[in-house]
Design a protein around this nucleic acid. Structure first.
Lengths: 212, 212, 212, 212
DNA sequence: AATGAATGAGTGTTCATTCAT
DNA sequence: CATGAATGAACACTCATTCAT
């Protein structure tokens, strides 16, 4: 638990999150951050060591707690299908609150040979997958879920759907006629979440008749 | 049809695609490109005007033909479910061949306030959506597909699943034990494609019983 | 006599000496010093005022006592040639113990328009020269030494020979096959010292025949 | 022979030499150089790759030709003692023309763990030593020189004396009453050179009587 | 008396682009 | 038509020093 950030550090992290989300990691300079956070440019190196380590701090801050939330969900007394729905809700909600950072986490980082704390990120992903496995296997043993489903590919479908929507925000705002930020957020909370839940549910339950 | 590129331009575009895929748009310098393409650094500005316009050229080159392929698919005499499967195959295959550029197209660009030719990209996306709509609506009118499906969200599920898998390549190589490039590619062509087809099929066909 | 340094100051000075010797004055940051001395970075400015004044303190500390040693030597009842030999020994030994600081004293400082306490350094050098003069003049009056020798240039020959050897340490380690630090130090104490003594003796005594 | 520098490069090298001589390598910024050379700051990286490689270029430029000069000297039909005198003259003259760079070459570099082209510098030094050896050995075989002299230590005495004088310029200007640059240069050309020649000659010829 | 926090100037280097030829 | 040379702005980062406590 070295993550005891002071006020200025938190301010920097907040600004960094915003800017990384807007312009990507490479696209954001520490000058941009220091200017928007109204701190001296040297403070970033001073507090975090480097731009990359700032990102690391941001990642660890934003991903903290997810593991616990998932574990709590596992303990709850719910039907498997309901657990899946809750898991999707939890994912969407959490990621929606931390859009920028999750985009970096899942996409920008993948394309770089970064040295950074990828180990802990991989652990996080593995933990998430393990939680999902437990839920699905529970449903399978209860006879509620089909058994010929590739569990590791469920997460890409959940998160990928969300991210693709998010990444093409202007396009969807246009064709779905979402004129305000509120409308857009509501669409995510209601329609998009339901679509993903519906999709995963169908995948897990649906008896595919004969072919393919 | 301004796309009459000469040999050097094509070489530049090829190199640019590779490097953009590897290191992202911001992460790639025109020095890198000019070095790898063994051309003078000034050529890029000379031929394409700027780094951004080089990207535009690359995008238009790489997305050309997709529209026609989709229209051909629509004309074919196939069952709706089979058309969907073919469409998914077509998407995956095409995108898999142009990984780098599609990643930029769908993710990197979204986060920038770029001035570039987003109009034509939006048109492309709209065309793609329209094709999908036609297929789904055909299936719905034939009674093969459910009617309470959000068609615009199908594309995010198809492409998002693929991209998320792609972007987390090292992670999936690890947990799926894909040791060689060939194994990885085969997994995409077979398992991942099938997963997406299975998912969309289930979504479109599955009669969701009572709740939700 | 403002030189009443406390423990921390002494620790800082010790570390500074080491680092200045290793990496030069410009090449050493007060961060390096504070880190190695395990004190707060602000301590250096606090205790010494500035990096330059830290150097001044170090110089005055390290050069203290030399004057007295020289004066004691003058008093001793020795033949002039033996006094010269002892003086050379004294120089070599002393400088060899304070390599880093003497290098800065004689070389690095000369190239800077430093404001620092050059006056006291000049006084020191003048004192040293005066001691040498007294010894040589004694030898000359006794008829042991030639009279056509430029006394001020003797010091450059003594110290310059030593410094040049020291500064090209890796080179001489190589060609003289000095594999360990001990071998190197022994070479200085024995061979190099003898070479300088031999050189100065020859210069002072040798009757140059006819030409030149 | 890659050393075909154009006019601007030569201008940069000239300025760099001056500034390195004045303020040392670390003490000189490429901004200083670019400002004094009236070129854009980026040109230094453009032409030389880096500040360190600029130094390398400067070194190779300034040390070129020395080897040939020494070899020519070896060929000449002169008495050994005269060859030594000429060698000293040659050294002093050459180094005096390239003060700054030789100071870096012999002193500043020694204190850094530089990766740079130290190999070629070591070769140069070895070559110089070899030339000296040949001359001294010739004198020894002719019976003109003593045989109990450490040849590798002769160079430190020659160069060290000169450098020490040079490095303490203000001090010697003071005590030797050298009021103008011309007086100072003349002192080097005449008195200092003669002192060194006298010293080395005495060392090589003088029969040390009994003791020591 | 002592220090963690903070500063502004400075570092070497790389950037996309332009210009003269 | 093509390019080597050149540019100024920007980059991440480190510097010695100061200040509030």
């Amino acid at each position: 638990m070295e993550t005891a950030f002071n006020d200025k550090q938190i301010e920097i992290l907040k600004v960094a999150e915003t800017l990384f989300a807007e312009k990507g990691f490479d696209g954001t300079s520490i000058r941009d951050i220091s200017k928007m956070a109204k701190i001296n440019i040297a403070m970033i190196s001073y507090y975090f060591g480097s731009k990359e380590r700032l990102l690391e701090s941001l990642l660890s801050l934003k991903t903290s707690g997810l593991k616990e939330e998932l574990e709590n969900l596992l303990e709850e007394n719910l039907e498997p299908v309901e657990k899946i729905n809750r898991l999707i809700e939890l994912y969407i909600n959490r990621i929606n609150c931390n859009r920028g950072i999750y985009r970096i986490l899942h996409f920008e980082l993948s394309s770089k040979k970064r040295i950074l704390n990828l180990q802990s990120l991989a652990e996080l992903k593995k933990g998430n997958l393990r939680s999902l496995e437990l839920i699905v296997q529970e449903g399978q043993s209860k006879g509620a879920f089909r058994k010929d489903v590739s569990i590791p590919l469920i997460t890409p479908t959940i998160l990928g759907t969300f991210f693709h929507f998010q990444m093409n925000k202007p396009f969807f705002e246009d064709i779905l006629n979402l004129k305000t930020e509120v409308q857009y957020d509501n669409y995510i909370k209601n329609d998009l979440t339901k679509h993903i839940q519906q999709t995963i549910k169908a995948l897990l339950i649906h008896e595919i008749a004969t072919n393919n």
